[in-house]
Amino acid sequence: MREPTYFVLAALLAGPLHGYAIIKRAEELSDGRVRLATGTLYTALDRLAAERRVELVSEEIVDGRIRRSYGLTESGAAALRAEAQRMAEAAQIVIEPTARSGRLARKPRTT
């Protein structure tokens, strides 16, 4: 999963948001590192909707324009958790190398 996709899903973890709110939330969550451009956001939303990881939750008219809010589906939340777990394990190799190597050393041999 690419970083913008990860932060789009992470932004929706607390509840449904509309386009601009997703951009702001992703920026906050990444400490300003991920600043989604409009085109990138909607490409990601299209793909995630096609994969059934996000869904349209509501539509309203604001200043004469349609505003849609998107929410995380169960499969989207599961994919996000799996990605977070994968990254945490990958990070652990670098951040706590001794703890991991200690666990590996204690692991009984099966063959």
């Binding site: 509309h18 386009g19 601009y20 951009i23 600043r35 451009a37 409009t38 085109g39 990138t40 956001l41 909607y42 490409t43 604001v62 200043d63 324009r65 349609i66 505003r67 849609r68």
Partner: peptide
């Protein structure tokens, strides 16, 4: 219309041109 709303909301007050990043992402997408 939805994308336009998002783009305008994200714009700074008085901004007259879309940012280079937004322009490139819209063209590429």
């Amino acid at each position: 219309e939805e994308m336009l709303g998002t783009l305008l909301e994200a714009a700074q007050p008085g901004q007259e041109w879309p940012s280079a990043r937004d322009a490139w992402s819209l063209l590429r997408s």
